[in-house]
Structure formats: C-alpha cells, structure tokens
C-alpha cells in the first residue's frame, strides 16, 4: 500500500495509528506540536468510559460503540473498572429519577450502599444510581501508553505542520477542531476543567453530581488528585477558564463534599471539543483523505471504534456505521 499518514497525535490520531498497525499498515504520524500535550484537547479530558451515563443524552451510536471502549483500552493502559456513582443534592432528587429513566445499566443505591461504595464521601447522600460496568482511566497516562506502544513498533510521533493537501498517499486527518477549514459542519464546544489535590478524600470511581444548571463530574486520578469537569459552552473562545465556570465547578464539588473546599487547585484547563451537529463522531471520506473528527465529549469513549472503522476501510474498503457521506 502507498504511504499512509496520520495527521494529529491526539487520542483519535494515536488510536488510528494503532489500528492501522494491527492491520499490517505502517503509517507515519505527524503532529504540529509533537507528542501529546496541552495543545491537544484529549489532554484535558475526564477519561471516563461511561457509555450508559452518556447515553442519558447522547445518540445510540455512542452507547453502542462506547460499551466496547473499555475492552479496547484495557489492552493499552491501566483501567479501573469500578463503575460510576451518580448523585444529586436532596433538593434536586427529581434529576436523579429523570436520569434513571433515561439511562440503563444502573441500579438504585441507598445511603448504606453509597457509604459502602465510597466510604470517604461525606455522608450526606441518601440516594444514588450505580452504573457497575463503567470504567475510567488516566488520560495523560493513557496517551503516553499509546505513544509508547507505537514507538515500540517503530512509529514515533513526528513534529511537523501539514494539511492533508500537503501530503501524498492516504491521509487520516485527526486534527480535531484545527480541521474545521475542511469540515464546514464542525463546530467548537468549549470545555473547562479543574484539577484539585485533596489528600483527605479518596474515591474509587468517578462521581457525577446532577444539577439542573451546573452538572459536575469528579474523576479520581490517584495520589489525591481529582479532575473536576466540565463546562459545555457553544463557543470557540480559547483562553483560560472564566471565573464563573471555576465558581460553578468548585461550588458543585464543595456541595458534593465540603472537604473539597480545603483542596489545592493544581491546574485549570480549557479547550475546544470538535463536534458535528448531531454530536456523534464521523469518518468523512474525500478521495484519499479520511477525516476522523467530531469526537465531542466522547474522545476516549469513541476513538477506538472510529479508528477501527477507518483502518478496516483501508484494509477491506468496508464502510462502518460511523462513515458519513457529505
């Protein structure tokens, strides 16, 4: 096969390269800023593999492919398969019923069961939903593990600025929002996150706090680190977290457990999620270029399936359900 280039070394590009290798296709992988870092929106992700929770709002394709994600990631990086706990403040218990009605794969838990699942959490939550089959990972470690796996196969991430038009052969364009010039339907959805260090608190699994206006998730990263996310704003504004977003995220964490009030703020982050109008990732084929894009808030959940379908297409010309005709 002629030369194959993967453009972009975020979670989509790294997975694309990995799946190509699995099919016996040796790509090169280029990124304008080199290996994974703060310039990729994958760097700022939560790392929850929570297809059932996401399914409360997302399209069925996200649940269908998302349930396969944990198995794919298990071969790459350390996974914690401890499920997801979903809670709501007493005032917002209607949100819990609503969430339960719109999702599957959960069971109701009472105060005693919550205490058993998360003994360190403040004993203020009387009802919750437990999604036992969900998993989470540490995104930056997972990206490094993907890079290490590619390097072991002789495919390092090379620093080079290019667009698909600059390159010969087959191109898998995984540049995220940077590819918007080629994908007019692509838009940015701004997300903001906070990284906290709270040595007093220990959580085994991601906890989601439902709220009519300021929903929050907290993902334990280990070593007392917790990631709080994430806002979802229809905006392409880059730049630091706003005071209002920080206030909302931190207030919600404080409401979940007041000890988060004593945590140290390690990092604030903000970036743009690339999304198509239905918020479902797509592969768009234009001649010798495949655009893998629009992973929205499902980068880690959907990258393995998107990459697998792109690689399968190059090997067998078969188009999976994530292919989208222009």
């Amino acid at each position: 096969m002629a030369e194959v280039t993967v453009l972009g070394a975020g979670v989509a590009g790294l997975w694309a390269a990995r799946e190509l290798l699995a099919r016996g296709i040796r790509p090169r992988i280029l990124d304008r800023a080199g290996p994974p870092g703060p310039h990729h929106c994958s760097w700022w992700a939560g790392g929850m593999l929570a297809p059932h929770c996401e399914g409360a709002v997302a399209e069925p394709a996200v649940i269908r492919h998302g349930t396969e994600a944990a198995r794919a990631w298990g071969a790459v990086t350390e996974l914690r398969r401890n499920g997801t706990l979903v809670l709501a403040l007493e005032r917002d218990r209607a949100e819990l019923d609503r969430f339960a009605a719109r999702s599957s794969g959960h069971r109701q838990v009472d105060a005693a069961e919550i205490a058993e699942l998360e003994p360190h959490l403040a004993p203020r939550h009387r009802r919750g939903l437990f999604f036992a089959t969900e998993a989470h990972l540490v995104p930056r470690r997972a990206l490094a593990d993907l890079v290490a796996g590619l390097e072991a196969e002789g495919v390092p991430v090379q620093r080079a600025e290019a667009t698909p038009g600059d390159l010969a052969g087959t191109v898998l364009d995984c540049r995220g929002f940077a590819a918007r010039g080629d994908l007019p339907e692509l838009r940015a959805v701004r997300g903001e996150m906070v990284l906290l260090r709270a040595s007093e608190i220990d959580l085994a699994r991601p906890v989601r706090l439902l709220h009519p206006r300021h929903p929050l998730y907290i993902v334990p990263r280990g070593d007392g680190l917790f990631m709080l996310g994430a806002t979802q704003i229809e905006s392409a504004a880059t730049g630091p977290v706003t005071a209002r977003s920080a206030l909302e995220l931190l207030s919600a964490a404080y409401a979940l457990d007041p000890r988060f009030g004593e945590a140290e703020i390690v990092e604030f982050g903000a970036d743009l999620r690339p999304a198509f109008p239905d918020n479902v990732p797509r592969i768009v084929q234009r001649g010798r270029v495949l655009h893998l894009n629009g992973l929205f808030r499902h980068g880690y959940l959907m990258a393995p399936a998107l990459a697998r379908q792109a690689a399968a297409f190059l090997a067998t010309a078969e188009k999976g359900d994530l292919f989208h005709e222009d």
């Binding site: 692509l186 905006s235 504004a237 918020n279």
Partner: peptide, 30 residues
Amino acid sequence: SPAVLEAAFRDSGAAIATVSLRRERGEGQA
C-alpha cells in the same frame, strides 16, 4: 445536540428562536 434543536423547530413550526450571547464571549458564531 444542534441536530435535535433543528428537528424541534422543524416539527413544531415555532416562529421565534431566542438565543443567548453572554457566556459565548463573542465566539459562538458556529
């Protein structure tokens, strides 16, 4: 998603759409 929003307007024939600007900080064009 925006696709669902479009469907809601299409199926209802709603005559007016309200839209917010403040939090998008001038970058909500798409």
